[in-house]
């Protein structure tokens, strides 16, 4: 218990963050591929997270990518209309696809 009290006193005097000013989270340019439909991806997929999320998934099927777009709409309430959802899916399958529909 004695030790506890000692620690308490010490701590009370060291109340500061290691970083006293704002922290700066660096911006990273992910090597996302350019191509048809990219505008729609940029407009619809960058609001909540970086392109790192897309790239990290590796090459996947059309169904997989359509599923992700739907997940964003259903679970995370991404405001994406059906027309954009199609364009984005085509783009993702074209550049991050594995040539399989399913």
């Amino acid at each position: 218990m004695k030790k506890m009290i000692l620690i308490t006193v010490l701590l009370a005097s060291s109340l500061f963050a290691q970083v006293k000013e704002n922290i700066e989270v660096p911006y990273v340019a992910f090597p996302i591929k350019m191509g048809k439909g990219f505008d729609a991806v940029q407009a619809n997929c960058l609001m909540c997270h970086s392109f790192g999320y897309i790239i990290n998934q590796g090459r996947q099927s059309r169904q997989f990518w359509r599923g992700k777009v739907d997940k964003m709409i259903k679970h995370f309430k991404a405001p994406i209309d059906e027309k954009s959802a199609k364009i984005v899916t085509d783009y993702l399958f074209e550049h991050y696809g594995n040539n399989k529909e399913k």
Binding site: P26, Y27, V28, A29, F30, P31, L46, M47, S50, G52, I55, N56, Q57, G58, R59, N98
Partner: peptide
């Protein structure tokens, strides 16, 4: 600002990509 992603982009990410399994 979402636009900042492009403006301030400073460094290229190398590690994110996954090879196809």
């Amino acid at each position: 600002e979402r636009r900042d992603f492009f403006k301030k982009a400073a460094v290229v990410a190398g590690a994110a990509a996954v090879g196809s399994s």
